[in-house]
């Protein structure tokens, strides 16, 4: 567990994986886009608008997954003081916020033609909006202190507090009456989605996941360099 907590080891491993991740991201997204836009049938109920699903649903999964990663990294930073964990959490936040934004906007663009409303305050939509603000709160807090360690502490606690929101988002459609329909893919009795539509969805999800890994590696590299710059400046200032 501590093996990759060492920044130079992490950098070596990350740089080795990076081109593969970037290449696979492009491949998966290209294949996913082809199937999402051309190689898949319209839906029996929703016609062509179902194509919005191929970005809406993967971005929703990523919004939750990235938050989970961010919270896990924050927890291991708070508990075990892994030097890299804070950097990973801080680097993941803007990516997660981006996915959440995509999820909210594409959901709105899907809701208008199908439901008849851009937005409703049902439990699913509201809890995802809360997730977006948790990301923004984390980003604001982590940058709010002159001493980065205090920023990581405060933002890490916020990230952990926000974890309660994850099961609320996931199960909101089962616990309460919502306008949003229940889960189609991640359900106990198997997906309620035709294979011709499941494949493009999974390809896009894979592409989004690798996009996350690629950008995360880049950002962590930037954070490691920034930390080294800070240390060098401090040591130079001391002479």
């Amino acid at each position: 567990m501590h093996r990759f907590a060492n920044p130079s080891r992490f950098l070596r491993a990350a740089n080795a994986v990076l081109p593969w991740c970037a290449g696979l991201t492009v491949l998966l997204l290209a294949a996913g886009l082809y199937f999402a836009l051309l190689g898949s049938p319209p839906d029996y109920q929703q016609g062509e608008t179902v194509r919005i699903m191929y970005i809406h649903v993967p971005s929703a999964w990523m919004a939750l997954f990235v938050y989970g990663c961010m919270a896990a990294a924050s927890a291991s930073a708070l508990i075990w003081r892994h030097p890299l964990a804070d950097l990973i959490a801080k680097s993941a936040a803007p990516i997660g916020a981006g996915f959440t934004l995509i999820c909210l906007l594409t959901g709105s663009l899907w809701g208008k033609p199908m439901w008849g409303a851009w937005w409703v305050w049902d439990a699913r939509l509201t809890s995802v909006l809360v997730l977006f603000f948790l990301y923004l709160g984390y980003i604001a807090l982590v940058n709010a202190f002159d001493d980065p360690v205090r920023g990581y502490r405060a933002a890490g606690i916020l990230a952990l507090v926000g974890v309660v929101n994850l099961p609320i988002i996931k199960f909101s459609v089962d616990w309460w009456n919502t306008l949003h329909q229940p889960a189609s893919v991640m359900r106990l009795d198997g997906p309620a989605i035709h294979p011709a539509m499941l494949w493009p969805l999974l390809l896009m999800a894979g592409g989004f996941m690798l996009f996350f890994v690629t950008v995360l590696i880049l950002r962590v590299r930037g954070e490691i360099a920034a930390a080294k710059v800070r240390n060098l400046q401090l040591s130079l200032a001391r002479g």
Binding site: P42, Q45, Q46, A192
Partner: peptide, 18 residues
């Protein structure tokens, strides 16, 4: 004063539904 449509979680091509 407002009517919203709610759809279910099933997705399939029209031919399959038929």
């Amino acid at each position: 004063s407002e009517v919203l449509a709610k759809h279910d979680e099933n997705y399939m091509p029209p031919e399959v539904a038929d």
